[in-house]
Design a protein around this nucleic acid. Sequence first.
DNA 1: GTGAAAGCGCTAACAC
DNA 2: GTGTTAGCGCTTTCAC
Lengths: 336, 336
Amino acid sequence: MRQKVTLKMLAQELGLSISTVSKSLKNDPEISQITIDKVKKLAKERSYKPNALAVSLKSNKTRSIGVVIPDILNNFFAKVLQGIEIEASKNNYKIITSITNESFEKEKEYLDMLSYNGVDGFILAVAQETQTKGEFEHFEEILKDDIPVVMFDRVAEEVYCDKVIVDDKKGAGRAVDKLINSGCKRIGVVSTIQKLSVGKERLEGVEKRITSYETTTKLLKLKKTKDYEQQIAQFIEENNFDGIIGLDETAAVSSVNAANVLGKKVPDELSVVGFTDGILSKHSYPKLTTVSQHAKRMGSTAAKILIDKLELRAERYLPETKVIKTSIIERGTTKN
Amino acid sequence: MRQKVTLKMLAQELGLSISTVSKSLKNDPEISQITIDKVKKLAKERSYKPNALAVSLKSNKTRSIGVVIPDILNNFFAKVLQGIEIEASKNNYKIITSITNESFEKEKEYLDMLSYNGVDGFILAVAQETQTKGEFEHFEEILKDDIPVVMFDRVAEEVYCDKVIVDDKKGAGRAVDKLINSGCKRIGVVSTIQKLSVGKERLEGVEKRITSYETTTKLLKLKKTKDYEQQIAQFIEENNFDGIIGLDETAAVSSVNAANVLGKKVPDELSVVGFTDGILSKHSYPKLTTVSQHAKRMGSTAAKILIDKLELRAERYLPETKVIKTSIIERGTTKN
DNA sequence: GTGAAAGCGCTAACAC
DNA sequence: GTGTTAGCGCTTTCAC
């Protein structure tokens, strides 16, 4: 093992005290310029780097952010993570990634483990199991310890902390408008996320908006046990739909494929609008028109809010909820 | 801020010394059972958790692993990350995720930053720019400091460290066999990753295997500037292919969609085999037959190797290269 | 302008 | 069986 360079070593070599060396490296005005230059020169030569651990112990700051997400294979979360990472790295923060796999226990465990001098703050999306259970004490615990938390997308209303969400309801409304404007008369809704808060929000958005038009809608909750495309194909046939809103990316892409099963032309005989605008939407045939949630921006926004808090640049004790605007990305599954 | 519980506090409250408390919590046989019980009881009550920073400073171990990957939006890397995460969490390691976005500079930066008491070891896939440049000093630096490195998938032959790779050549051979066995006579190869080592490996594998049969092949390198499906459709038409091997997931899915453009039936008129077996393969229409690289297993294997090294369970100084076997996942784009 | 000393929270060798 | 002490590498107050 190559010897690690410490302040002590530099001090010895220069015949100075440790504190002088430390101050020199910080350009402390107490120290003469000559000394400062001397110290810096040697530090550079030896490529001295402060021991992050020692600095953290002293300052009680780790410069790291705990990111707790339900599922990294979900392209949406991956995008958010990317946004967080970029912003964090800009500000010289590390990120510690934890994946709950939608489990309440894992979520609790990770929060607990990381809250003890592991990270300065958290960015998280609530696990499905936690949302179903409605138990949020583990978040409160963290907040009591004065560790800031920013929730995104899957948030817990009950917890008083910063949040970054998407105007899902409005987005759903936009999806309805889009379909109606491209001539659809009968619109069906397909979802695999009926249990999640976002799933409910979107459904509400659709239902509310559809009352503006002379039509109604119907929801198909996809069952994991059966083939999605078959379920959707049947749903379309039975109700004679000419428009489908997929409340999540999988539901939307499967709807496009269901049209293939039925031999219906998209978008001529069936239009589809999806949510999330991830990688699947760009690789379906035809490519999906979607409501984009700007996942990357969600990530960077969440990171900005958290870092502002950590650096005390923001007002304390005043949690904010930031709403990211949705927008429709027009591609091939709708008519103009 | 709720006061953090420290050994000192417990000691004071119990009228014991700090070291006694410390030892009690470690079940040191030097300490009487009565004391141990007393200490543990209070520790539990106060929900004492050791300060991870102090432990790290003392032990010079952080129990964290630096994971450096080129792109988290790539489903393959996301899967590997998932595998790493599971294994790490099992062994009570944290993971620090860094995304290089294929940049040499970023890769260097992250390795540098994290190597100073940030992490105990690294798991990484080399960035594209680094592979192109062929500069690997930054890896050597890390190894000199005795920080173990495990490379996966995108490895640098030149660096003497542990590696986890896939038998890409054999996998490519399997893809050829699969197509020939399902009756293909003219096989084309499509790729978006011709610059990466894995891309070259796979191509070689195809070319080598195809000599066993009475046919030849041809490669289409997809240009980012133009629509993939159009390029592929043209390629298929011009060469009258009845089989396509997509060397990466995007190329493979785009090939299936190109068949749609041409109005060719898959797999009846055109068979396709892809690589990577990610989320896209499962959502194309028809679903893709692919060569799976078992990404998750790659991740957990890499993590196991690293953790074994870190805990000195493994022989030191003897880097190993583990080859993960590929397998064909049969779905709808090939005939039986 | 420089240095000594205390302390962040913990561990462990060494007393007693 | 329990306590004292030194030290991990750094920052910072206070003394000189």
